[in-house]
Amino acid sequence: MRKKPSGIRKWMLAALAGAALLGGAQAWAATESGEASKRKDVVQVGDAVCTRCHDEGEAKPILSIGKTPHGTMADKKAGTCTSCHGASPTHINKPSDVTERPEPGINFGKSSSTPIAERNQACLNCHQGGARMHWQSGPHAAADMECASCHRIHSQEDPVRDRATQPEVCFSCHKEQRALVNRQSHHPIKEGTVICADCHNPHGSAGPKLMARDSVVQTCYTCHMEKRGPFIRTHQPVTEDCTICHNPHGSNIDNLLKSRPPFLCQQCHEPSTHQGNIASTTFPANTTNNNTLARGCLNCHTQIHGTNNPLNVGNERTFRR
């Protein structure tokens, strides 16, 4: 048998019900009278006018921005709803002569009617400079990409800024790279220990291919500095562009080589004493298999990036010691 509420509990329940009714009535009255400015901001300075509608029950919830730097009210430069979306007076107060509430002044996403340059400018108003100095002259801007194509502004976790999930964001457009990172020789991109932004600055760069440093070689040196030299003997392509011989996104040949020796080497080297020998996998009864099996030409020319050995006793000139 259900127990009746005690006297105190009865009074408390009545008081809570009354407070709820009063609070609801006040909220209704405030909304109807257009006194949104009297509501308390929740996650951003001046957001009361937005959060009166865009709570978690609404089609476009926005409260989660409170978890992010943009929702840090103590930082006066953190931005507000209107600093990104525009003042949007007709969105906030729907004119009486329209049936559908007009969109905010600046909208983002696939169905937005705001010109992309305006959308991006909303971000660049604060974030221009630094790593985004060259955004406007970069290929992503030229491809009409908007910041929100890659970034999630309203959530605590922005997948493109998480090392574990960033590659998947990039692969949504870069399909060839998605296939290449599956190859047997690859940087640990899928494993999450090397990510796209370690080598590329997607926001624009003074280097080719959005290189994070000023050139391909300078970017590769940040991890492979032993290749920088200079050496007594330096392999010419090494100083020009690592991608002449390597595909950094993946290869089915060890060490990310674009072609297997001897074919790779024969693309440049004159057929002299042995350079033009036919590739063969016959072992050991063949005089040329040592240019194909194992490391191919590198079975002997082990110091292929360069050698700093000054001695004249062992063909250091040909990158062997």
């Binding site: 100095m133 700093n308 062992g314 010691r321």
Partner: peptide
């Protein structure tokens, strides 16, 4: 002899110093 392959030199230590200015 002529085919001596020891010692083999390993990659030498090196350094670089860059000064830069960029702007918009």
């Amino acid at each position: 002899g002529a085919n001596t392959l020891s010692p083999i030199a390993l990659a030498p230590s090196n350094e670089a110093h860059q000064f830069f200015v960029d702007g918009g």
